[in-house]
């Protein structure tokens, strides 16, 4: 990522919780879709919950720190 931490930082509650809220929304879709349907709905569940795991892997594999 080319943005520096200062550019990404700053701002208030909205900035801090934007990404966590998106992760939460993806998780919720994943938890419910497999419950409410089969086949494609199961796959949607794997995809959305899988994205949250990939996000974690991404930030661990590429620490923002020098």
């Amino acid at each position: 990522m080319s943005t520096t931490r200062e550019q990404r930082a700053g701002g208030g509650v909205r900035r801090i919780f934007a990404a966590p809220a998106l992760m939460g929304l993806l998780s919720l879709v994943g938890l419910l879709s497999a419950l409410l349907g089969d086949h494609l709905w199961d796959a949607l569940s794997w995809a959305t919950l899988g994205i949250t795991l990939l996000v974690i892997a991404w930030y661990i594999a590429r620490p923002a720190e020098r």
């Binding site: 931490r5 990404r8 930082a9 801090i16 934007a18 990404a19 966590p20 992760m23 998780s27 949250t52 996000v55 974690i56 991404w58 930030y59 661990i60 620490p63 923002a64 720190e65 020098r66």
Partner: peptide
Amino acid sequence: GFGTVRVQRSTRLKWLDLHNLLGVVT
């Protein structure tokens, strides 16, 4: 920024950031 993991300052700071990242995503 979201997902910041400060790996080089101290072990404690690294685990603080990991605790926050892993916790908040899940």
